[in-house]
Amino acid sequence: MKPTNYLFTIFLVFLTIINILVSLSIGPVHISITDIVRNIYLYFFGKDPNWTVSTILFYIRLPRIILAVIIGTILGVSGLVTQTIFKNPLGDPYLTGVSSGAAVGAAIGFLTSPFLVPVLAFIFAMIAVSISFIISRSNGEVNTEMLILAGVSVSFLFSAVASYIIYLKITNLRGVIFWLLGGLYGATWTEDYWLFIALIVILPVIVYFRKELDIILIGDDQAKSLGVNTGRIKTVTLLVSSLITSLAVSAVGIIGFIGLVSPHIGRKIVGESHRFLIFVAPLIGANILLASDTIARSTPQGEIPVGIITSFVGAPVLIYLLYRRRKL
């Protein structure tokens, strides 16, 4: 194995830290680097920091930056799992019906109380995912070809329900429109805390199965003949990645392209094996989302939805990668 893969993984960790520091110094309100350093010092060493600066840094920017890193990590890793299990380069973490299920939940949430939105979005996302899984079970294991079709069908069904609710009640549901666009506004430490807990509980499960994910890519029959319990591993990894994706969606709405593009970029650099990819894809996801969100929140005209930026950045990168592949 190429030793550069170790170096690149470590490099990505440093890149993430630098990205966090840079993002901390960028925002709609200009704060100079010296102000930032001085206030960090004052904040941690008990003196009285400037209220405006420290509030912006520690209660607005930093929680949002951490949220971007967490959500990017979730989307990167679940995008990778989806692409591997479905052996489909177009797989994205919403494939099993997460996003449209969450949209229905959000729409119902906004009709009752906006504070119920994340809870209902999560519940309905999991309902949609469960339906997809139940439809596609055969002989006690998940049939991935069926699951793609089931996911698409369930997505259409839930999208129709969500569209109908929104269409009927558009004036009471402006919140849904903002929610559907996705965004990391309103990030708080509480939100970061819970998502972080979920991430460190769930991520090791996926990392643990990285060897199996490699073997599954070669084909189901071969994987089984090598001793891999493909049915159990597919079900567990997909359910777990759908679960964290649902959590991510319920927290920040539907943010596209991160889950699709991060594994592709990772593969180009560290190769096919999940040995490194399982760490590299989420780190790339975290960096792309953080950079995109920093742009999204810093435009002088007021914030623009981050999904627009991720697609705007992600699509050209993907096109470039495909172009390179074609030339090889």
Partner: peptide, 15 residues
């Protein structure tokens, strides 16, 4: 800000 219904950042509100 620009436009009829822009998003305003919490940072701007603090300032």
């Amino acid at each position: 800000l620009t436009g009829a219904y822009p998003v305003i950042s919490l940072e701007q509100i603090v300032v």
